[in-house]
Amino acid sequence: MESAHANLHSERGPLRGEHPGRSRDPVIKVRDLAWLEFEKANLRRAESFARDFGFAVAARTPDTLYLRGTLPGPQCVVVRHGPRSRFVGPAFQAAAAEDLTRLARATGAQVRELGDLGGGRVVDLRDPSGIQVRVVHGTTPLPALPEQPVLTVNFGSRPGRVNDVQRPAPEPARVRRLGHVVLETRWFEQALDWYLDTLGMIVSDFLFLDDQRDRGPTMAFVRCDKGGEPADHHTLAMHLGPGVGYVHSAYEVADMDAVAAGGEYLASRGHRRVWGIGRHIQGSQIFDYWRDPDRLMMEHFADGDLFDSTLEPGWAPMSASGLAQWGPPATRDFLGTDPSPALLRNVVTALREENEIDLPRLLGLMKAMRA
């Protein structure tokens, strides 16, 4: 059966009996990502890259760095001092204080005061992959900062700029806000259902292995359910793989010029581009990916899709070439296919333990990343 939305944001709709992409009765419905938490051994180096990437520093203590965008709201990123560089987990915003109570009651967790910048209250959980997930409410929002000017563009017969020139400033692209985080997991279906059932998120697009569609999707782009209010195409994306944890996080900037000029600034500072510039298919964002000094991947993006709750999931085959409408080919670094001891360890572990990775699934993923 073809979806009514098949020709709107995906060439294919669901087949009968496939995953509906939402829960019938979720515990709560989160409003957005609040922030991401990391640990770093060198906070000074982390702050230097963050400023080059375009974050503002909201606060700094001897052990914690709080990074923010220009929009009002909570900090985007919390970096705590630790023995090594690692992703700790995401924090999501609850819609109401009562949601924390409801969530704690349903999961057996506790509601406690959040002794951090902005205060508020928090429920700490673990998703089926073992990743820490926080749900927060009542944090004091940070005030707005000056925005990066959006350039006035001439469109053929509709000029907006006369007797003037374009000269984007050679400066960092100012991060406006946190957009999304992408996670890898060996327990894809179980983890996906947890986010839909527990946090009330809904799927915008599914990807599947072209010759294994009957085994279910292998990637989901998941948004917050705000009813009739438009939400980012994805606040969370998850894909099946031999690893577990962080893949990348994405931060909105003003426009395509900010993406491009911000990339030139990062390159001038000696930082490493992973992939870009291009335009995605699922989500439509203009993208540019970079590595921080600890090799964690981060994305500048602009012009992403917004969906309300009426739009059903699209379905598309998973492939490297299907990740972008235009731009350079996806790199092996971005795809995570560079041979390494860590990748080999993950593959061996995944094949030995009980999860959704088996040899046909692994070979199918490898084929898709070469397609």
Rank of each mutant, 00 (worst) to 15 (best):
E2G: 08
A4S: 09
G17C: 03
E18K: 05
P20S: 12
S23W: 08
K29N: 03
V30D: 05
R31F: 11
A34M: 05
L43T: 01
R44M: 07
E47R: 08
F49C: 14
R51Y: 07
V57L: 10
L65G: 03
Y66F: 02
Q75Y: 14
R80M: 13
V88M: 02
A94M: 15
A97K: 05
E98L: 10
L100V: 14
T101H: 11
L103K: 00
A109Y: 11
V111S: 00
E113M: 01
G118A: 10
G119R: 07
G120P: 03
V123Y: 09
V135N: 08
V135E: 14
H137L: 09
L142P: 00
P143V: 07
L145S: 00
R158E: 13
G160L: 06
N163F: 07
D164P: 02
V165R: 09
Q166R: 06
E171I: 06
E171K: 13
P172G: 10
P172C: 03
R177L: 05
V181F: 15
V182G: 03
L183G: 00
E184P: 03
E189H: 11
E189M: 13
Q190R: 14
L192A: 07
W194C: 04
Y195R: 07
T198P: 06
M201H: 01
S204L: 00
D205I: 01
Q212I: 04
R215M: 02
A220F: 09
F221N: 08
E229V: 14
H233Y: 14
T235L: 14
P242W: 12
Y251H: 11
D255I: 04
G262K: 04
Y265I: 12
S268C: 09
I277Y: 00
H280K: 02
I281P: 04
Q282P: 01
S284A: 13
L296P: 02
L296I: 03
E299S: 07
D303C: 06
G304K: 05
D305I: 11
L306S: 01
L306T: 01
E312N: 11
A316K: 05
A316D: 10
P317N: 08
M318T: 10
Q325D: 14
A330H: 03
T331E: 10
G336F: 05
P339E: 09
V347M: 06
R352L: 15
L362E: 00
K367V: 05
K367R: 15
R370V: 02
